[in-house]
């Protein structure tokens, strides 16, 4: 398909089939923010350094600023908007609030998605495992400590709920 043509791209976004018309030179982040109106994922460095644009593609943490939207045609994308359940914050979101893990908040959507993917595969991660899982998400406010506290708190809450 040629460079200027708008082509349809259908993704399962937060559980809903969403179709957008985009050019091939559209990143997943641009499709989410500017075509589908999902502005939770943040446009930070826009070149893969900061992690603020992290979303899950088929459950795997992915930098949406470096992902071409057409490469996600037919795939499942989860953004920070997909974490809350009918308006009730996810335990991770609640924990970030309670520990002060979000200050300016710009890195938070990416932090939440990396942390969410970690807790999906590991119910009781160690502090080192959390730190490692979040190592691709930069924060310039918190010094990270409160973010790590938040993930530990959310993990404990989720384990409690699973009992």
């Amino acid at each position: 398909m040629d460079a200027a043509a708008l082509v349809p791209c259908t993704m399962q976004v937060n559980g809903d089939a969403r179709t957008c018309a985009i050019t091939p030179a559209t990143t997943l982040l641009e499709a989410l923010r500017y075509t589908l109106g999902l502005t939770g994922s943040k446009q930070g460095c826009d070149k893969g350094d900061c992690g603020a644009c992290t979303v899950l593609v088929d459950g795997v943490p992915t930098l949406s600023c470096l992902t071409l939207a057409l490469a996600c045609d037919g795939r499942a994308v989860t953004t920070v908007e997909g974490l809350a359940d009918k308006g009730v914050p996810h335990p991770l979101q609640d924990a970030f609030d309670r520990t002060g893990g979000a200050q300016c908040g710009f890195c938070t959507p990416g932090m939440l998605m990396s942390a969410y993917a970690l807790l999906q595969r590991e119910a009781a991660p160690t502090r080192d495992e959390i730190s490692h899982a979040l190592s691709g998400n930069l924060c310039r406010c918190t010094g990270y400590t409160k973010i790590l506290d938040a993930v530990e708190l959310a993990a404990a809450e989720l384990r409690e709920r699973a009992k």
Binding site: P61, A133, S135, G136
Partner: peptide, 9 residues
């Protein structure tokens, strides 16, 4: 290599 997300991609 780089970060977890970049290694996933």
């Amino acid at each position: 290599v780089a970060s977890p997300q970049i290694r996933n991609m």
